[in-house]
Amino acid sequence: MAWRIAGATALLLGIIGIALPLLPTTPFLLLAAFCFSRGSQTWHDWLVAHPRLGVPIREWREHGAISRKAKMLAGLAMLGAIAGAAVFGAPRNVLLAQAGVMVFVALFVFTRPVPPEGGFGDDAD
């Protein structure tokens, strides 16, 4: 039961993240799939097979890939988070720590491959 609740919570946060630019979608969908795989195979299979929500999960599982669109949104969200903290007067040491962490996150995100042509995502031309 706890895995299903955790999966549903992660799924809800992922869906909210579709509309809110500073809340990431894909990590929450990956977490939801992980939780559902332990708590409800039916929900797991539904999520992974979903025509919109399942795409980034399948791309990550099969290719370790992140779409160009997701990379751009992640980069913008990171810049927005730092800019927002600066605008609201975060201390310099907090901004530096935040920027330092974001550098490593950005390195990870931007060094992942893009899904292959004809893949699941929005990068197939």
Rank of each mutant, 00 (worst) to 15 (best):
A86E: 10
A86Y: 14
A99W: 11
V101M: 10
I16L: 14
V109H: 04
M72E: 11
G17F: 06
G17E: 06
F120P: 02
V87A: 15
A2W: 08
R38E: 12
L47D: 00
M78D: 08
P115Q: 00
P116V: 02
D122S: 08
P56Y: 02
P27S: 03
L11D: 00
K69T: 13
M78Y: 09
V109Q: 05
W46D: 04
V55M: 02
P91Q: 12
T42M: 13
L29D: 03
G84E: 10
W46C: 01
H63D: 05
A2R: 11
T42E: 15
I82K: 09
G64N: 06
N93H: 15
G54S: 02
P21A: 04
L12D: 08
F34H: 14
G54V: 00
A65S: 07
P91T: 07
I66E: 02
E117F: 03
R4M: 08
A97M: 13
R4Y: 07
V55F: 00
G75L: 06
W60V: 01
T25M: 13
M102A: 15
V103I: 14
L53K: 01
G84I: 09
T42Q: 14
R4F: 05
T26P: 03
E62K: 01
L95N: 11
G121D: 03
M72V: 15
F36K: 07
L73G: 04
A19L: 14
F108M: 10
I18M: 11
V114P: 00
F36M: 10
L47Y: 02
M102P: 09
D123A: 02
D125K: 12
R61L: 02
H44R: 08
A8Y: 06
T25I: 12
H44Q: 08
D122W: 03
M72W: 14
D125H: 11
L30R: 07
L23Y: 09
F120D: 02
E117A: 06
V48M: 00
F110A: 04
V105M: 05
F36Y: 15
V55H: 01
W43H: 13
